[in-house]
């Protein structure tokens, strides 16, 4: 993801290569698109998904994450959990990023479904956010499992939080599977937007059902931020840093993923035209040679 200077700054990260943009403006202001010299450049031939804004965002995200890891590694071991308590620097922030991603996916789907705000970028944001969220959700389960093995003695337990998180992951894996099916983009956007909203509507029900079912997981991590908390202050501050870093990481990934989606769409709709033009040009040259 190299980051040449782009015309649109970080404030318009989703609109840069929409198909409606006027053609023939290749030049210093749109350098992320390769000019082939023969025909106008298209999003389909763009080489990068970034710009200066995303470079800054990415640098901040990686810096924050690295700082979190280093500081988390140097946290003092606790009496009950030993060194494993240090996972608090990563695990709750990952879960937060997953919730954030699925929330953004639901909002973007609703915005797409609502006719007055319908725009292709909401569909792109929804799929990008869901995909990123699935990664964060899976990582949440993995880190929790790594923590649970030495602390609880098991990799997995049928606890309310674990079960509902696993179901959340399954719901959005289904959503992504629905998106993978190739058909008309408009129909795909509509169906997947409805599927996302149905999945999100299921989340509170899943939460209540497994909460009544059985509960072992400790309370919310953010509830530990109070003067009465027995959690060490350094733990809280590292965890909060982790929340910020993971939020930035999410934003960075989503911006790039949206751009990839836009390029894919452009490739599908314009790539064929470009290829046809190239073939015709080749044929012309060959004919002229004869």
């Amino acid at each position: 993801m190299s980051e040449p200077a782009g015309r649109a700054g970080p404030e318009r990260p989703f609109e840069r290569t929409t198909l409606s943009e006027p053609a023939g403006r290749a030049g210093p202001e749109r350098p992320f698109e390769r000019t082939t010299g023969r025909e106008r450049p298209t999003p389909a031939t763009a080489r990068s998904t970034g710009g200066p804004g995303t470079t800054l965002l990415g640098a901040a995200a990686w810096l924050g994450l690295a700082t979190t890891v280093v500081l988390g590694w140097r946290l003092p071991p606790t009496r009950e959990q030993g060194p494993y308590a240090r996972l608090i620097a990563i695990h709750p922030p990952l879960a937060w990023a997953a919730y954030l991603a699925f929330g953004v996916c639901a909002v973007a789907s609703a915005l797409w479904l609502w006719k007055r705000t319908r725009a292709p970028r909401w569909d792109r944001l929804a799929v990008s956010s869901a995909e990123t969220g699935v990664v964060f959700c899976a990582l949440t389960l993995v880190t929790g499992s790594i923590w649970g093995r030495p602390t609880w003695g098991v990799w997995w337990t049928w606890d309310a939080r674990l079960t509902s998180t696993a179901l959340l992951l399954a719901l959005f894996l289904g959503y992504l599977a629905l998106r993978r099916v190739a058909y008309d983009p408009e129909a795909r956007a509509r169906r997947s937007a409805v599927a996302a909203l149905i999945a999100v509507a299921d989340v509170p029900i899943v939460h209540f059902s497994v909460d009544w079912w059985r509960t072992l997981h400790q309370g919310r991590s953010l509830a530990q931020i109070s003067p009465q908390s027995d959690l060490d202050g350094s733990y809280v501050s590292v965890m909060l840093l982790g929340f910020c870093a993971m939020t930035l990481m999410y934003a960075w990934l989503v911006v790039h993923r949206c751009q990839v989606e836009a390029m894919e769409e452009a490739l599908e709709s314009e790539g064929l035209d470009v290829a046809l033009e190239e073939r015709r040009a080749e044929a012309d040259v060959a004919r002229a040679g004869v």
């Binding site: 179901l167 099916v181 299921d202």
Partner: peptide
Amino acid sequence: VYGVLAAGLKVRETLLPLLLLPVVAPVLLS
């Protein structure tokens, strides 16, 4: 709802269980 979501797709037989079963997991539990 999920039946019509998956209707008309080539992969509906395999897609429907993946979509529907996690959603109805609370029904099984309750």
